[in-house]
Simulated scan of single mutants.
Amino acid sequence: MTIRAAGAGDADADADALALVGGATFLESYAWMIPAADLLAHVAARHGAEVYAAWLADAGSRVFVATAPLGAVMGYAVLTAPDLPADCVLDGDVELRRIYLLGIAQGQGSGAALMAAVLEGARDMGAARVTLGVHGGNARAIGFYGRMGFAPIGRRTFTVGGQVYDDLVMGRGFE
């Protein structure tokens, strides 16, 4: 895998690829727990190319992509201003809004490489801490974040369709 900043070349192509991978990874992760109609509506609203195009155009956001040897996007990460409960946010925080990697690319060090790019990008943004929200039942992701130095700092709820889910909020400062 190669990790690169998104949008440096063809931002439209990156936005389309991010939308495709975003929808696929959300489906991979949550199809077992979210009704199909709610899942599809959520992906359409939160993983459309226009969502990624807006982040790519936002000077306060950073987007990184993990690509296979022939250039296909296999995963990505998005850093933005925090959109978390006020009691979980400190001055100087940035939020790791998304870090998704297709299942076929997991377990090969790509997630750690993507996270390294995220942390370097956050430092470049002047962040004091990186925060994120993760589904409270996603033990694999929570374990990964723990290995990357993140610790619980709070909770929030997340709604998909008519169902409310509990998220764990985690953070990691820089030493």
Rank of each mutant, 00 (worst) to 15 (best):
L119D: 01
G107C: 10
A141F: 00
T157D: 08
G121A: 11
G121V: 11
G92P: 01
R147W: 08
R4L: 07
T80N: 07
I104V: 10
L114F: 07
P69D: 08
V43Y: 06
A128Y: 14
R98P: 01
G162S: 08
P152Q: 13
S61H: 03
Y52K: 00
T2R: 06
G9H: 07
G126A: 11
R140C: 09
V78R: 00
Q106E: 11
V73L: 01
P85V: 12
F144W: 10
A13D: 02
M74Q: 09
I34Y: 08
E175P: 15
A19W: 06
V51Q: 03
A141I: 04
T67S: 02
V134K: 02
T159E: 15
M33Y: 07
V94I: 13
T67Y: 04
A6Q: 02
L39R: 03
V118N: 01
D93H: 08
R140Y: 13
A44L: 07
L20R: 12
G143Y: 06
G22P: 03
F158P: 00
A81G: 15
V94E: 11
G162M: 03
R4N: 07
D91V: 13
M170Q: 00
E120S: 08
L119A: 14
L18I: 05
V78P: 00
A128T: 14
A36Q: 15
A141S: 07
Y76A: 02
S110G: 11
H135D: 02
L102M: 13
M33E: 06
R123G: 12
D124C: 12
A151L: 08
R123F: 05
T157H: 09
A127P: 05
R98Q: 10
L79K: 03
I142V: 13
A17Q: 03
R172Q: 01
G162N: 07
L96C: 01
M125T: 12
S29V: 00
R4Q: 13
D10R: 15
V164K: 04
I3T: 13
A139F: 09
F150A: 02
R147S: 15
A57H: 11
D93S: 14
G171V: 09
R97I: 14
A13G: 03
V63W: 02
A8N: 13
A105F: 11
G149Y: 06
A41R: 12
T131M: 02
V89L: 12
A15R: 01
R4H: 05
Y145F: 04
T25E: 06
G92Y: 14
H135F: 15
A116D: 15
M170Y: 01
A139Y: 14
G75L: 04
V94Y: 15
L20E: 05
V160F: 13
L20P: 08
A86S: 08
V89K: 05
H47L: 06
G7I: 07
M125E: 14
A141M: 07
A122N: 15
R98L: 04
T157L: 05
L96V: 05
A37R: 10
L39N: 09
